[in-house]
Simulated scan of single mutants.
Amino acid sequence: MRRDVLWLLVAMANAAVFIAADSGGLPEPLRWVAKPAATLALIAWAWPRGASQPAQRQWLRLGLFASLAGDVALLWPAQGFLPGLLGFLVAHLAFVRSMTTRSRLAHPGWPWAVYGALAALVLSAWIWPGLPAALRAPVLVYVAVLVAMAGQGASWWWASRQREAGWAALGGALFLASDTLLAVDRFGGGVPAASLFVHALYWGSIALIGRSLPR
């Protein structure tokens, strides 16, 4: 079996274990092992990629490790929320920087505007009313950076139509969808089967962003 396929299978198996444990179908302590293991397997899968694009690879790896830190922090849903937010904030900034090694920032700008409008709509309609006052400023900053990451992936693809850019654009969109469902579930009244959809979209986004590195 090819090494990259093996790492993807390891990531999928650990993701399935985590989602089952997080949903009550498996013992709860398995969450603490399976969640970081899934992200580490995706990091191992992406690690050999990008030799021809060292700057993009450097920043993307930083984003993956920052995502891992955010994963671990969010294993504590209450105490870890702000540290997790910070970890993923760093991840999105690193992903944006990785994309701009091969594209111009916000060129074109319309994907940023579209994602920004969608985020503002969801935030105002479903999240803001239930969001504690102490979290409003950090969440606004985080949403702005998340929108920038998703928007930059779409801008890179629109301007270049490169295959790697397409993976980045799709990964950014899935990350935005995952975090939207997470926020609605936590602050907007709940989402059915939230753990399944939030985490499947999240790990799918990480894999796609990693695939934006050329072989």
Rank of each mutant, 00 (worst) to 15 (best):
F88S: 06
A113D: 00
V90Q: 03
L89K: 07
R97V: 05
S103L: 05
R104F: 06
R97S: 08
L85V: 02
H92M: 09
L89M: 12
G109Y: 11
R97M: 10
Y115Q: 09
G109L: 14
A113I: 13
S98N: 07
P111R: 08
A91F: 06
R102V: 08
S98L: 05
G87E: 04
Y115P: 08
H92S: 06
V114D: 07
R97Q: 11
A113R: 00
Y115V: 12
G116L: 00
V90I: 13
S98V: 06
R102W: 02
G116A: 11
A94K: 06
A106S: 07
W110S: 06
V114M: 02
T101I: 00
P111I: 09
W112I: 05
F88R: 09
V90Y: 01
L105F: 15
Y115I: 12
G109R: 14
T101S: 13
R102K: 00
P111Q: 01
L86R: 08
Y115G: 13
V96H: 11
V114H: 10
W112G: 04
L86D: 00
V90E: 05
S103D: 06
T100R: 14
M99P: 04
S98G: 12
A91K: 01
H107C: 09
R104L: 15
Y115N: 14
V90C: 10
V90T: 09
L86S: 10
V90D: 03
L93F: 06
G87F: 00
V90R: 10
W110C: 03
R97F: 03
A113C: 10
F95M: 02
L105C: 01
P108F: 04
M99C: 03
V90A: 14
W110P: 07
L86I: 15
W112E: 09
S103V: 00
P111C: 06
P108S: 00
W112Q: 03
A94P: 07
G87D: 02
R104A: 15
R102C: 13
T101W: 06
A91N: 08
A113F: 00
F88A: 10
H92R: 05
T101Y: 03
A94L: 08
F88M: 10
F95G: 00
L93Q: 04
S103R: 13
Y115M: 14
V90K: 08
W110F: 02
G116P: 01
S103H: 01
V114N: 02
L89V: 01
S103W: 00
R97I: 11
R102I: 03
A106F: 11
S98I: 04
F88P: 08
